[in-house]
C-alpha cells in the first residue's frame, strides 16, 4: 500500500478541490514557491490566478478573502505561522464569522484558513510556536485539527466545501506523520465527527491533533495495566459531544491532553461538558501547556511547557488510582 505523508495529504486535498471546483483558489505568503511545502506543484497545475501570492498584509488579505467569498468564490488562505492568527483574529471573528448573522442570513462566507505547522516546531521560539485553536472554538468558528494523513485530506476537503469559515490547524508535530493509505479510500471526513483510534475499557483519553500519536504510544505502553480508549475529536468546534459521551459513559474516566494554555483551553470545555453529562468514577484530569505559556527558545524549555507523554502517563495512572 502506498505511503502518504500528512503534508502531501494536504497538497492532494487542495489539488483535488481546485480541480473539482473552479471557484476554489489559494492565497497567502510565498505559496507559489510553496515555502511551507503544502502548495507544491499547484502553481504549475492551476496558474497564478488561482495561486495568489500576497504581500505581507495579513489583515487586508484575510478580509480580501471574505470579500471574494461574499462574491461567490471559495478562498483558501494559508498562514505559514500560527501566531499570525492573532493578527487576523479580528478579520476572521468580526467579519467573516459575523456576517451571516449580522446580515440576517443574506450571505455566507466560505473561507478556509489553513495553518500548516501549528504549535511548536522546536527552536522557533515565542512568536512562531502558538497553537491557538481554542480561541476559535471559543468564538464559534469551525475548528479542525486533524491528526493523521487520511483525516488531514478528508477534513481539508470538507473545510473547502463547507459554507462557513473554517480554520484548519495542521500541527507541526503531525506534519511528518506517514501512513499506509489506499488512495482510493481517501474521502471527505465529516465536520463535527470524532474518531476512536483505539478502543479501551478503563479510561477515555481525549487527544487533540499531534497528541493523538502520543496518546496512542502511551496507551500501548500501559496496555498491561490499563485499557485506554483514545478519542480524537478531529473537530473542536462543533465538537462531537455525543461521540465522546458514548465513550466516557462506557469507561467512566476521562483524561484530556491538549496543546492549549490551561486557562480557557479546549480541555477545560471538554471536562466541563463531560461532567455535565456523565457521572464519572474519578475526577477528570487534563494535561496542557501551563497557564499563559509563551514557548521559550531553548529546546529543553520548549519541551518543558508542552504536554508530554510522561505527564499523560501520570495523569492516567492518578485517575485510575482515584477511583
Amino acid at each position: 500500500m502506498p505511503r502518504l505523508s500528512y503534508r502531501k495529504a494536504l497538497t492532494r486535498a487542495l489539488a483535488d478541490e481546485m480541480a473539482r471546483d473552479e471557484s476554489v483558489f489559494l492565497l497567502g505568503e510565498d505559496i507559489r514557491v510553496a515555502a511551507s511545502n503544502v502548495t507544491a506543484g499547484l502553481l504549475k497545475k492551476f496558474g497564478p490566478e488561482r495561486v495568489l501570492d500576497t504581500p505581507l498584509s495579513e489583515q487586508a488579505f484575510t478580509n480580501f478573502a471574505t470579500g471574494a467569498a461574499l462574491a461567490g468564490l471559495r478562498p483558501v488562505v494559508e498562514f505559514q505561522i500560527p501566531s499570525l492568527l492573532f493578527l487576523v483574529f479580528e478579520q476572521i471573528v468580526n467579519h467573516a464569522h459575523k456576517f451571516p448573522l449580522m446580515t440576517g442570513g443574506q450571505c455566507a462566507v466560505p473561507v478556509t484558513y489553513l495553518v500548516p505547522g501549528s504549535g511548536s516546531r522546536t527552536g522557533w521560539a515565542g512568536q512562531h510556536s502558538d497553537h491557538p485553536y481554542s480561541l476559535f472554538a471559543h468564538v464559534g468558528v469551525t475548528t479542525l485539527v486533524p491528526a493523521t494523513p487520511a483525516d488531514a485530506y478528508g477534513l481539508l476537503v470538507s473545510a473547502i466545501r463547507h459554507v462557513d469559515p473554517v480554520v484548519l490547524f495542521a500541527p507541526a508535530g503531525a506534519m511528518d506523520v506517514r501512513a499506509d493509505v489506499d488512495f482510493a479510500t481517501l474521502a471527505p471526513v465529516p465536520i463535527g465527527k470524532g474518531r476512536v483510534h483505539r478502543a479501551g475499557d478503563d479510561v477515555t483519553v481525549v487527544a487533540v491533533g499531534h497528541l493523538v500519536h502520543d496518546a496512542l504510544a502511551v496507551a500501548e505502553e500501559l496496555a498491561g495495566q490499563v485499557s485506554v480508549e483514545v478519542f480524537d475529536p478531529r473537530t473542536l468546534y462543533p465538537f462531537d459531544w455525543d461521540g465522546l459521551t458514548e465513550s466516557v459513559a462506557r469507561t467512566g474516566r476521562l483524561v484530556v491532553v491538549d496543546d492549549s494554555n490551561r486557562s480557557c483551553g479546549i480541555a477545560g470545555e471538554i471536562m466541563a461538558t463531560v461532567v455535565e453529562r456523565v457521572r464519572l468514577l474519578a475526577p477528570p484530569r487534563r494535561v496542557t501547556r501551563p497557564d499563559g505559556a509563551v514557548l521559550p527558545f531553548a529546546p529543553a524549555l520548549d519541551r518543558a511547557v508542552q504536554p508530554g507523554r510522561e505527564q499523560l502517563t501520570a495523569a492516567i495512572q492518578l485517575t485510575m488510582k482515584d477511583g
Binding site: 489583515q59 487586508a60 488579505f61 484575510t62 478580509n63 480580501f64 478573502a65 471574505t66 470579500g67 471574494a68 467569498a69 461574499l70 462574491a71 461567490g72 468564490l73 478562498p75 479580528e90 478579520q91 468580526n94 467579519h95
Partner: peptide, 13 residues
C-alpha cells in the same frame, strides 16, 4: 475594515 473586503469582492466578480 471594509475597504479590503470590498477589494476582494470586486476582484472576485
Amino acid at each position: 475594515a471594509a475597504g479590503s473586503i470590498l477589494t476582494g469582492a470586486v476582484w472576485a466578480r
